[in-house]
Amino acid sequence: MLIVLPPSETKSHGGSGAPLDLAELSFPELTPVRRELVDALSTLPVDDALETLKISEKLRGEAESNTRLWTNPTMPAIERYTGVLYDALDAATLEDTSRLAVGSALFGVVRAADPIPHYRLSGGSKLGGRTMKSRWGKLITEALSGEFIVDLRSGTYQTLGKVPGAVTVRVVSGETRQVISHFNKHFKGEFARALALHDAGSVGDVVDIARAAGLDIEFDGGPELTLVTP
């Protein structure tokens, strides 16, 4: 089982790892596109990057950091990404993170231990006039084929490489039955943590693991689960 998490806009800076070496990343079939994107992003003038990335002057440091993608230090991907989902996941307290991966506009998909630098690029960005979806084509889908996938990526990142048959999760309010957005990431983080502690080979296994962890999961026999919040 591989649990594919969504990335986060916020990321930890710094790191103690050597500069980016694409040969060190999982899914080597993604290397050519990764190289093209890193080269394009790192050579994009900072003023142009602010517009391309749709970020304000206050975040100029993010664009400046992109110019050093080949030289900045790295850290494991699971430590690089931060935010609500990653707080709930609390990967630092997991003995084994090998079942975790993260979707990425820049790297396609990386496993938890893959060393990556700080960067700023979203799945909805255009770089060199091309969308991330057009750049990745079918490569991410093909890279993830052959494994049992639990896909927790947001819609934007799923479109970069859809995985037919993957288990997905919809988070709804127990009171209104409406899809929730504010706490969506928190509950997906709890869900991912529960799964990371066990192995699963079917959607039924996933349901059993989640329910044993105290999560309210509705299952109609298909690959889409509904997680009902308190």
Rank of each mutant, 00 (worst) to 15 (best):
E64R: 12
V46E: 12
K58Y: 11
E51F: 07
D39Y: 01
E36K: 10
T31E: 12
N72I: 00
K54Y: 03
T43G: 08
P76T: 15
M75P: 02
L50Q: 10
L44H: 04
R68A: 13
S42L: 03
L41F: 02
N66S: 07
L53C: 06
A49H: 09
E57L: 09
K54P: 01
T52Q: 12
T52M: 14
P45T: 14
R60L: 08
A23I: 00
A40V: 04
R34L: 02
V38I: 05
L41S: 02
V33F: 03
V38C: 03
L44Y: 08
L44F: 05
M75E: 14
D48W: 06
P76A: 15
V33R: 13
V38S: 01
T71N: 09
E62S: 10
P32D: 05
S26H: 13
P76K: 15
K58P: 01
P76L: 15
L50D: 11
E24K: 14
L50M: 08
E57D: 13
L59M: 15
A49R: 12
D48N: 09
E29G: 07
L59N: 13
E51S: 14
L53A: 09
E36V: 04
T71D: 14
V33G: 03
D47E: 15
E24I: 00
A40P: 00
D48M: 10
K54L: 07
W70D: 12
A63K: 12
E64T: 10
F27Y: 15
E64N: 09
L37R: 04
E64S: 08
L25R: 00
R35H: 06
D47A: 15
A63M: 13
E51L: 13
P28H: 13
I55R: 12
L53V: 07
A49Y: 09
L44S: 04
D48P: 01
W70R: 13
E24H: 12
K54G: 05
K58V: 07
K58T: 14
R35G: 01
E57G: 01
T31I: 05
L50T: 09
L30D: 07
T43S: 15
L41Q: 03
M75G: 03
A40E: 11
E51R: 14
S56L: 05
W70H: 13
V33E: 14
L69V: 01
S56P: 02
L22R: 00
L22D: 02
S56R: 11
N72L: 05
V46F: 09
G61M: 08
E62P: 00
A23T: 05
L59E: 14
R60A: 10
V33T: 15
A49F: 08
L25D: 00
A23E: 12
P32W: 05
L59F: 15
N66R: 08
N72H: 06
M75D: 06
E24M: 10
L22G: 00
T74N: 07
T52I: 11
E57K: 13
E57F: 04
S42N: 04
T71F: 04
